[in-house]
Each structure stands twice: as C-alpha cells, then as structure tokens.
C-alpha cells in the first residue's frame, strides 16, 4: 500500500520521491544485493515534528544518510528546504545528530562547539555567545572545558545535540537521539525538542522510543524492510481503534472460582491475565460472572505501539495465543 501524504498548508522541508538504495556486497563472482530502501515517497512539512519508526535494519538510517547526501541514491530524488542538499545555503539551515555521535577525543566540549559553529559561519564574540547559549541549553556549561575523552555517553549525546543546534537550524535531523541517555537526560532532551518545535524548527526524528514519538511528533511514518508502510498524524493514531493489550489484575486466591476457564492457571501463577483489547470486555464480564474480584485493569501498550506493530504486521505474531488468553 502506498502511504498517502497528509496535506497541510506548510511547505515541504523534505520532499522524497521514489527513493531507492541498493547495497552491493560480496566479491565479483558472488555479488550480494541488499535493497535497503524501495521507492520511498515522503513529504515532511515545515514547522512539524516527524517521527520515523521501524525495526532495526528497516532502512531508517539509510534514509537519513540519503537525505544528507552521505549516501547516493540508486534511484529517486530528495529536495531539502526547497533546494539540493549539495547547496551550502541549504546545509546552513540543517542540524544533524547521528546515532551515538563520535567526536575527536582530543578536544574539549567547548572547542568542538566552537569548531562546528565556525563551520556555520559564526566568528568572534557572536560565536562565543552562541556557544554559551548552547552550553546552557544542553546543561554542559560546567563540563565544557573538559576533554571529550572524559565524557559519559549521555554527555556525548548532549554535545551531539549541541553541535546540531549551533547553526540555529530550520530543520533538525536526529538519528536515535535518546540512545545512551538516562531518564533525566531523556526528559531534558524531550523538553528541548518540544521547545524547538514551539520555536518553529522542523524535526525529523528517527527513533525506537514510542513515548518520544507520542509526546513530540505531529506525524509518524513507519518504515519496514525498506518500504514506507504508513504515514499518519499522531492525533489520528491516538484516536484510532487499533487494539492494545491489557493486564487484568486478579488475586491468585480467586483462581478456584475460575475452574474450567483456560486462564485459571495463569491467574493462580501470575496474579492476573494479559488479554487483547478486542476481548477485554468479554473477559471482564466472565470474571464478574464467576464473582472473581478484579483489582485493576491497565493497558500494556500504547496506541502508537499497537499502530506500529499493526503496520509492520507484527501484531498477529505478538498476539499469538498466550497462556491464559480466553
């Protein structure tokens, strides 16, 4: 199914048409061809946050590298901010955070930001002022004078986002921005994204973290095995009726009341039962009819997760008959 782009009034920040990428590996006589991307069409609108989701190896990083011209497409085209990525004026307006950014360990955090700032054309006191602003934003002021070799994974990720933001980008492209962050760092990063979005920056986030997508993104796209399966606004997904899984908390002492019911053993053993949203009402009425006391019901997955799993066809696999499921 070709995903349909949601039309908005905003112009396109990234316009991808029929983008394909094939990797050739192996030797001359035993060539091996891998189709990393298969004819992807995608529009990412300005002033919006777009989340690209997919399993490992789905082609997400390849797509970002093609947008940034770190890879050359086998077929198709990419337009960024109305021009070609080869243009300096276009690159000037882009920030990029790779997955687990690696820096030369011989520099301090401040020196790195100064360097990347000067590549964006800042110099003198303007550069220093901009670096100070970024250090404040990423909460790295106190560690700015230390060499990068002494930084933790989280600190490196902060410097990574710092260098991506130093040029005041109109479009920020992040590949797994939350990897390596602790819960505090994760929250801070999410807040930075929310602030940037409010300030009108277009965000293109490539992520696994569904919570991040739900809280930050306006639209999501699902990439699976090199093909774009779905593109939809997050508001529609949250309203959708894609079934999610629930956990029904039942005291194990209630198990004898459930004789003859398949999930009796599960209740006795686990103190509850996991069911699909499709059969939640029926299961609850069954429990009520047997006068078993239900202590609580909670969703095990979000709408977005369910939507994602559904889109990649994994829902059926994950919803295989479980012990205790009616």
């Amino acid at each position: 199914m070709e995903p349909t782009a949601v039309m908005t009034d905003s112009p396109c920040a990234i316009q991808i048409r029929g983008l394909s990428k094939t990797y050739k590996t192996g030797f001359w006589f035993t060539p091996k061809v891998t189709h990393a991307l298969k004819g992807v069409h995608l529009d990412i609108y300005e002033n919006q946050a777009f989340g690209l989701m997919g399993l490992n190896g789905a082609g997400k990083t390849t797509l970002i590298k093609l947008v940034l011209a770190l890879l050359r497409p086998t077929a198709g085209s990419v337009m960024v901010l109305g021009g070609s990525i080869a243009q300096r004026s276009v690159r000037q307006q882009i920030g990029y955070l790779p997955e687990l950014p690696y820096f030369s360990k011989q520099h301090t955090g401040r020196e790195l930001l100064e360097y990347f700032g000067s590549l964006h054309g800042f110099s003198g006191s303007t550069l220093q002022h901009r670096v100070d602003e970024i250090l404040e934003l990423i909460r790295m002021r106190s560690a700015a004078g230390l060499k990068v070799s002494g930084y933790s994974k989280g600190m490196l990720q902060r410097i990574g986002i710092g260098q991506a933001l130093i040029g005041k980008p109109k479009l920020l492209i992040c590949d797994e921005p939350m990897s390596g962050l602790d819960p505090v760092g994760y929250k801070e990063m999410r807040d930075i994204f929310i602030d940037l979005k409010k300030a009108g920056t277009t965000l293109f986030l490539n992520t696994h973290i569904l919570d991040e997508v739900e809280r930050v993104c306006d639209r999501i796209g699902i990439l699976h095995e090199g093909s774009l399966k779905e593109v939809a606004p997050i508001s529609k997904i949250l309203e959708s009726s894609v079934p999610v899984d629930y956990w029904i908390d039942v005291d194990s002492g209630e198990a004898p009341k459930l004789s003859g019911i398949p999930f009796q053993e599960a209740v006795q053993k686990n103190g509850g039962v996991q069911v699909s949203g499709l059969v939640l009402a029926e299961t609850l009425s069954l429990l009520t009819s047997r006068k078993a006391q239900v202590k609580g019901v909670r969703p095990l997955s979000s709408q977005v997760e369910a939507y994602f799993l559904n889109a990649i066809g994994a829902q059926a696999h994950l919803n295989r008959p479980r012990m205790g499921t009616p």
Binding site: S84, A86, Q87, R88, S89
Partner: peptide, 8 residues
C-alpha cells in the same frame, strides 16, 4: 553565501 555547488 549562496551555495557553491561542490559538484560543479
């Protein structure tokens, strides 16, 4: 500065 297209 407007882009010198590096390819050119």
């Amino acid at each position: 500065m407007s882009a010198p297209d590096s390819g050119r």
